[in-house]
Simulated scan of single mutants.
Amino acid sequence: MRSEIASNRFGYSTLVRSCCIGREIAKALCKGGANVYGLSRTKELLDTLKEECPTIKTLCCDLNDWDATRKAVQDIGPIDLLVNNAGISLLQNFLDVTPEVYDQVMNVNLKAVINVSQIAAKTMIDRGVGGAIVNISSIASERALQRHTVYCVSKAGLNQMTKVMALELGPHKIRVNAVCPTIIMTELGRAFWSDPIVNKPYIDRTPLGRFGEIEDVVHTVMFLLSDKSAMIHGTTIPIDGGLFVS
């Protein structure tokens, strides 16, 4: 699922761009009393999200379309929190990378982040309220993965963009941070990574000896959105069980 979700920040307005992890972030915000808007190009996914959280409002839109996305997000209203979580990965060997795959991945993983973040940040600045933005990156931003050339580059770019955003938006009291999850056991993750032959090399390199669960990401993001992280700004936090230090 690729979506944007706007909410009422435990008192703020929040925007979450999402897949299944973003879906759980949106539900957590909903449980906290947030007013949530879901934006996705797939109506069926929005329908099931609304079934799970009837208070969520939904909008159909493709993140690849700059103008349509901008119009949809602008129509939502004031935004105080933003979670950029939508992302795609199209696997190709380095020697086989095509312009089409490069453009498609970069459009979602970086260009759409710029688009939505500009809108959200400008509403925060215009209202003088400050806010918080969390970008969902990946361990692939730091670890080279075979057949993930464009994905790795997009996430490394997202990390650096997080720092630039923090530098420029900090004076407006807008905090910007990123999280870098390891392999997360979503439904798709379990289907592929539950095989011990496949997962053993990665588990052996992880000091905590396991992959991440969706709630590991959700809890970290919720913390970064909250005032409890009021002095955390411009950071990239691994959610990796220690993989980065091994």
Rank of each mutant, 00 (worst) to 15 (best):
K228R: 00
F94L: 07
E52I: 01
G242L: 04
T235H: 12
T186N: 07
V217Y: 05
K71E: 09
I56T: 05
A86K: 08
N35H: 14
D126A: 07
E187G: 05
L145D: 13
E142L: 15
L90S: 11
V179D: 06
G234N: 10
G32Q: 10
D204Y: 06
M124P: 06
G33N: 03
L110Q: 07
I184V: 07
S3N: 15
G241T: 02
E51K: 03
I114V: 14
D103S: 09
L167P: 10
S40M: 05
Q74F: 13
P181V: 06
N135A: 04
R2E: 14
K173N: 03
L188E: 15
K71R: 06
A144Y: 01
V134Q: 00
V153T: 12
A120W: 12
L224P: 01
R2N: 15
M222C: 02
P238F: 13
N199L: 11
T182F: 14
A34C: 10
T14V: 13
I21M: 06
E52W: 03
S13A: 11
I56N: 03
G209W: 00
A112I: 02
I184E: 00
K122V: 12
T48Q: 09
S194Q: 04
D96M: 05
L39C: 14
D80I: 12
R9L: 15
I214G: 06
I79G: 01
T14K: 09
E100Q: 11
R23H: 13
G130C: 02
T98G: 07
A28C: 11
V73M: 05
